[in-house]
Structures are given as structure tokens and as C-alpha cells.
Design a protein around this nucleic acid. Structure first.
Lengths: 252, 252
DNA sequence: ATGTTTTTTGAATCTCATTCATAATTGTCT
DNA sequence: AGACAATTATGAATGAGATTCAAAAAACAT
């Protein structure tokens, strides 16, 4: 019966190669220029075969976004498992997203594009299910931090669930990435260094939740120190120069 | 020379009628099903004429999003000019967006779709400029509140500009609307009543900024009271039943 | 070896956005 | 008014690309 298995595996492999290729093409030319026929022939298959895997282009895009959750998750889990105060771990989650946005701007663009009602609804039902399923571990990683925080008395839930509590920060993070990716918008509103602002704003939110240890809003040095510490201890493999979040007040 | 004037006016009127019709069609069938040819013939003009106004479909969508800023602005200005503590006025801004999202869900979907890198970049440069320009008054309305707040000692800027300070809340608001419009996402993460959560989270952020008068996080009754007051005094013309933000803890 | 089922193929189809040569209208000048 | 020029409007034709599906190939079963 291992024939069945092998078949299935080969199918899955082909699907991955389609996605690999699609990702490469998107990174090179942007989502708008991805063409199904081009993709198929780049993978040395026919369009028909491609359509056996994905019911439509949108379906493929959702699959792609789903798959690339993997890298994000890896960083989230590092943050979640880091031996440090819960508050610092929450900041590490935000920083993870910032680093990804730096490293692969197309990642967030794709995620944003795909979660648009228009595109989202054009994907197949099962594909959407899978995408939601894949995002669960991300939520779980954050939930894990929140639960630790509650347990150690760093924060109180006031009747909310851990997921609900973190949703505010989630929204802030998503929102800032959206604003950033709308070229010119933040500049037009005189908001430079959006990611630094995100971190500062997250600190305000955490303070507002009375998430210990609280940090003085004007103590930029301390806030930066934490971020540098995260870079040193959690995201060592990222160049510190690629971290656009430190130093909100002085220098550049 | 009034001939020139009349011409110009008629041109503008035609453009509006295109946008009116496009908006109606989008509300009925969604962005995905808007067809340029259909739109043109519904307006009793040829496609060519339509293309004299908009360089592409994306261009039209951006124009549409730009125009519908108007209604939003009207609500923002009410919030901005309301005679009430600055903190309440900030909440009124958020509530304005929630009310619009309730009344015309397609508004936020369109805005989100349009601010996608993919669509945004496919619009013409001047159109993008105009869109950014049109969003200025929204920013100004908020900025106005922040400045009042600073003046009356309700909040401190700590070296940020008024716009920068408000960007965190802006991101949170945008982000939550994005999350909401990705069907099933919040449900999958067990986050019901996102708008209530948004308001609660905004309160946390405001507290974190030490924005006076501070509010106890667990005092749901007081938080609700403020929202109801806003509905009563600022958004009287909206049915209170259409306000999905009150009562986070009990009832439904 | 032969028939049957499954997979793959890619040319043909279909849907639209976009263009542009032509027609219609408007404006100008005598 | 009529003749010529400039501007606008038209919609059939074009083009780009997603999607389909009848036919061919491959895999499988007997």
C-alpha cells in the first residue's frame, strides 16, 4: 500500500514546488505580475496540472500566504519560549513581525492582499479553512505568553480571554503594517519611523493594561535597551542594523 | 468665459455620476464584480468616455475611496468639535469608524482593498496624491483633539508630534477593521465582538498614555456610559441599536 | 496483451480591461 | 451662415491572461 503513500507525497511535493516558484516570482515581480501560465511552465507542468492543485489564482495566493506563516511562526515561538519577563516577550512578538517586514516586504503585502475581502472570498472554502488553521499556532504562541503573564501576576484579564486581551495589540501591529505598505500615506501625515512608533505605542498599551514591569513613557533609553536585548538574545541571526526600531528620540 | 466654467462643472458632474453608479454597483455586487463596460453603459456613456476620467479600474477605485472620505470626515469633525473632554472626543473618533463600518461595510472593504500595495500602485500618481490630500482633514481633525488635550494638560507628547502620538490609535483602529473584514479570522481565534474589544483596547492605550481622565480597566459600566453619551450627543442620527460596542462584559 | 481508470496536456474559450481609428460635436473665423 | 479646426465621444477591435475541457498519455488491473 506504500504506492498510495508515495503518490500522495509526490503530489504534495509538486504543490510545494509550485508554491516555491510562485513565491520566487512574486518576490521578483510583485503579486500583480504573477501569471498562472508562466508559473506552470516555469515548473515544467501544464496549466491544467496547476489548476489541479489550486482552484484559482486567488486560491494559490491564499495557499502561499498560509505556507509562509511557517517562518513567522518560528520567530513567534522563539519569542514565546524566551526566558524573560512576559512583557519583553510580547515586545519580541512585535519585533518579529517588524524583522520579517524588513527581510521580506512582500510577505506582509501578500498577507494583506490576501486578507482583503475581495481576494479572500475568491479562494476556495477549504483553502480558507486551512489558512485559518495555520494561523492558530501564531495565536497560541501569543496566548502562551499572556497566560504566563497572568499566572505570574504581570497582568490581569478583567474578564477577557487571553486571546481577546492580545487582540488589541494584534490589531495595532496589523494596522501599522498596513499603513506602512500604503506608500506615501504615513509620510503624508508626517509620521516617519512607523516601526519605532509601533514599539512605543505598544509600550503605552502595555502600560495601560498595567502589564508589569511598567516602563516610563519618556524613558526612551530603557525602551531601546529592551529592544536591543531582544535582538541580542532572541533574534541573534538578524543583523542589528536591519532593526529599524531603536532610538525614537535622538539620532537617526 | 462662463462657458469654460459650465464645461468644467459638467465634466465634474459626470465624474460624480460615474462614481455614484460605481458605488451603487459595488454595494450590490462587491468590488470584484465591478466591470468598466457595465458601469459605462449604466451611466449611458461609452467605455472610452469613462476612461477619459479614470486611467484604469484601480484609478477609479482609488477615486471612489477618496470621495467617500467625505462622510467619514463629517463624523470626525463632529467628534473633533464636540464640547467634551479630549479623551471622550478621541473615543468618538473611533466610534465614528465603527458606525460607518456598520452602516456601509463596503466602505472599509474598499478602503482596505485600495490601500493594498497591489491596487494602490496601479492607480495613477495624481490620483494617489489626491487620495492622500483628501485624508489630510481626517488627520487634522484628530490632531486638533490631541492639541487641545496637550493644551489642557490631559496628555503629554514626550517629544512626539500630535500626529505621531495618534498614529498608534490609528493603527489599532485600521488593524481591527482589517481583521474584522477577513471573514472567519477573528472567530477562528475566539475573538467575538471585535468592536467592543477595540474600544476597550483603546481605553487601555489612552490609560497607557496617561490621557486624563483615566478610567479603571474593569469599570465596564463607566466605559459604556461614555459610549452611550457619545451616541446621545454626537451621533444622535445613528440608531443606538446599530452601535455594537456597548456592554463588553454581560448580556449580548 | 487488452481494457479501464486516472492524470496530464495545452489549444481553445471566455472574460474583461484597455486602446484607438472614426464619427460627432463644439468652437472659431470670415 | 458656412467652412475649417479642435475637441470629445464612441464602441468595435485588441490584448492579456485566467480558466476549461476534449483528447492524449500514463498508470493500473485483469
Amino acid at each position: 500500500m506504500s504506492v498510495r503513500e508515495r503518490k500522495k507525497r509526490q503530489l504534495a511535493e509538486r504543490e510545494q514546488s509550485f508554491l516555491d516558484q510562485a513565491w520566487a516570482m512574486i518576490q521578483a515581480d510583485g503579486v500583480l505580475n504573477l501569471q498562472m501560465a508562466r508559473l506552470a511552465s516555469a515548473c515544467e507542468y501544464s496549466v491544467g496540472t496547476l489548476y489541479q492543485h489550486f482552484s484559482s489564482k486567488e486560491d494559490l495566493l491564499v495557499a502561499l500566504a498560509t505556507r509562509s506563516v511557517g517562518e513567522r511562526l518560528e520567530l513567534y515561538q522563539r519569542a514565546s519560549q524566551w526566558q524573560a519577563p512576559s512583557r519583553h516577550r510580547m515586545l519580541a512578538i512585535l519585533l518579529a513581525d517588524v524583522l520579517i517586514a524588513q527581510k521580506a516586504p512582500e510577505y506582509f503585502r501578500l498577507a494583506q492582499y490576501v486578507s482583503t475581502h475581495t481576494i479572500w472570498m475568491a479562494a476556495s472554502g477549504p483553502r480558507r479553512e486551512a489558512a485559518l488553521e495555520a494561523s492558530q499556532p501564531l495565536g497560541a504562541a501569543v496566548e502562551n505568553i499572556v497566560k504566563d503573564a497572568v499566572q505570574s501576576g504581570d497582568v490581569r484579564l478583567y474578564g477577557l480571554s487571553a486571546r481577546e486581551l492580545s487582540a488589541g495589540l494584534w490589531a495595532m501591529c496589523e494596522g501599522m503594517h498596513s499603513l506602512v505598505s500604503a506608500a506615501g500615506l504615513l509620510e503624508a501625515h508626517s509620521v516617519p519611523r512607523p516601526f519605532q512608533l509601533l514599539m512605543a505605542s505598544a509600550n503605552a498599551w502595555l502600560n495601560g493594561q498595567q502589564w508589569r514591569p511598567e516602563v516610563a513613557l519618556d524613558d526612551v533609553a530603557q525602551q531601546n535597551a529592551v529592544l536591543l536585548q531582544i535582538m541580542d538574545e532572541v533574534f541573534v541571526d538578524f543583523p542589528k542594523t536591519a532593526c529599524p526600531v531603536v532610538a525614537l528620540k535622538d539620532s537617526d
